[in-house]
Nucleic acid binder design. Structure first.
Length: 442
DNA sequence: GTTGAGCGTT
């Protein structure tokens, strides 16, 4: 009666792989991740009502649906937001291109220790290692502990390849039942030069879909995100896995669907542009920046539509419009001046989120300093002072924004409101479709 | 035995 394998595919319309079940009928998450690095769960289409159903996940085991696994069914991987679902394809070529290009002279693609925030107290280095090894070779895992040997809830990870580092920074992480954040540590600030992954694509037409852009730009390297503002605004953002690919495209014209588009840096430009406002706090949201005070909330009220389960971080302090940024308008006169105050029409933030904008809300990289978390303008000034290519500077912001985006997407609910018993995050429970066992967390 | 923003030799 029981089956030994189930069919799993990365995406719809992709070929499936048979994955072995355990004796108890569950599928180990590690088994899944062995074939699909970065996957955090499974889903399938319920034949009865066509709805997508999630597979129960508990203690790193995927449990069969109530009526058991169906050997005829294809189960599909679930990836965290911003996860790269095409890892199997382009990554090798990308890194080839990169390593053969101008990168080596620039230390931007060096791995650094990454801080992992939000670990469960219980989580061991071994468990963390097993998790991150699904992304690639791990050189070091460290959990910081107090004198009694109890975890402080954070640690460090170091990858062997920069590609892995990029992937990991670009998403959030479910480690041992907790959503964790991985960032470049503050101590590395300024040391690590991050390069922009995101480009601005100007002169887009309304006919260009996300898929069109993705397909077109994928030939240069792995595309991890395509953002098209709605309503239509004649530009979009394309994010590549590899920043060098992104850099290489900047300044170029490309023809997509017979239309010439212009690629430029998706980054804040100069001081002069910075007084602009991303618009409208009409829904109470705030793209951060502006307040001179602490680096706390500011984004709490934002509505990140792309997140299915991380919502509800009730309104952070509204950071009254300081420190906002224009995308780089200098390259193409065609970039619509769209960020500025138009926008009562954008009710629910179909505007790009922080990540798409490449913005570091609240200057969080300066935590722990006495700089009172300067708004971006200040950060930019500081960065401009560095002997770096301004494009790379912009990129750094981009990267930070990325990390922050992950934070916003993933961390919003964890540990604040609405937690279950024992401080278990309900969002986790929702994902698991059942309340987590206590043993999951403590 | 509690905690949940943070930033690494212990």
């Amino acid at each position: 009666m029981s089956i030994e394998f189930i069919q799993v595919a990365e995406e719809f319309n992709e070929e499936s792989i048979e994955l072995p079940l355990e004796e108890d009928g569950t599928l180990l998450l590690s088994t899944l991740q062995g074939q699909f690095p970065g996957a955090t769960g499974l889903k399938y289409r319920n034949p009865e009502n066509k709805a997508i159903r999630g597979i129960r996940l508990n203690e790193s085991r995927l449990h069969p649906p109530n009526n058991g696994w169906d050997s005829e069914m294809i189960y599909y991987c679930v990836f965290p937001k911003e996860s790269v679902s095409e890892n199997k394809r382009k990554s090798d070529d990308v890194m080839e291109n990169v390593s053969k290009s101008k990168v080596s002279k620039c230390q931007s693609n060096k791995c650094t220790d990454l801080i992992v925030l939000g670990l469960a107290w219980k989580t061991s280095e071994q468990v963390i290692r097993e998790y991150f090894e699904t992304f690639g070779e791990v050189l070091m895992i460290q959990v910081k502990k107090d004198s009694k040997g109890h975890s402080k809830g954070f640690g460090f990870v170091r990858f062997a390849s920069y590609e892995c580092q990029l992937r990991v920074l670009g998403q959030r992480h479910l480690v041992d039942g907790r959503w964790c954040e991985v960032k470049v540590p503050n101590s590395k600030e300024g040391t690590v030069q991050q390069v922009p992954c995101k480009v601005f694509v100007g002169r887009c037409t309304e006919e260009m879909t996300q898929d069109d852009l993705r397909e077109y730009f994928s030939k240069f390297g792995e595309v991890t995100d395509v953002f098209i503002p709605k309503p239509f605004r004649a530009f979009s953002f394309v994010t590549f896995l590899d920043p060098e690919i992104a850099q290489g495209l900047c300044g170029e014209d490309h023809i997509i669907k017979g239309v010439s588009v212009h690629v430029s840096n998706a980054a804040p430009k100069s001081e002069s542009n910075r007084s602009q406002n991303y618009g409208n706090n009409s829904n109470g949201s705030n793209y951060g920046g502006g307040r001179g005070g602490n680096g706390g909330g500011g984004y709490g009220g934002s509505n990140f539509n792309r997140n299915d389960y991380g919502r509800g971080g009730g309104g952070g302090p509204s950071g009254n419009n300081g420190g906002n940024f224009m995308p780089n308008n200098n390259m193409s006169g065609n970039n619509p001046n769209a960020w500025g105050g138009n926008s009562n029409s954008n009710r629910n933030l179909d505007m790009p989120n922080l990540q798409n904008l490449g913005i570091n809300p609240g200057g969080n990289q300066n935590q722990g300093s006495n700089m009172s978390n300067p708004p971006m303008g200040v950060a930019m000034n500081a960065l401009n002072a560095l002997p770096m290519n301004p494009a790379l500077v912009a990129a750094a912001l981009n990267q930070w924004g990325s990390a922050m985006g992950g934070l916003l997407n993933g961390m919003q609910n964890q540990g604040n409101n609405d937690q279950g018993p024992n401080n278990q995050p309900w969002n986790q429970q929702q994902r698991n479709q059942n309340p987590p066992e206590k043993s999951n967390f403590m």
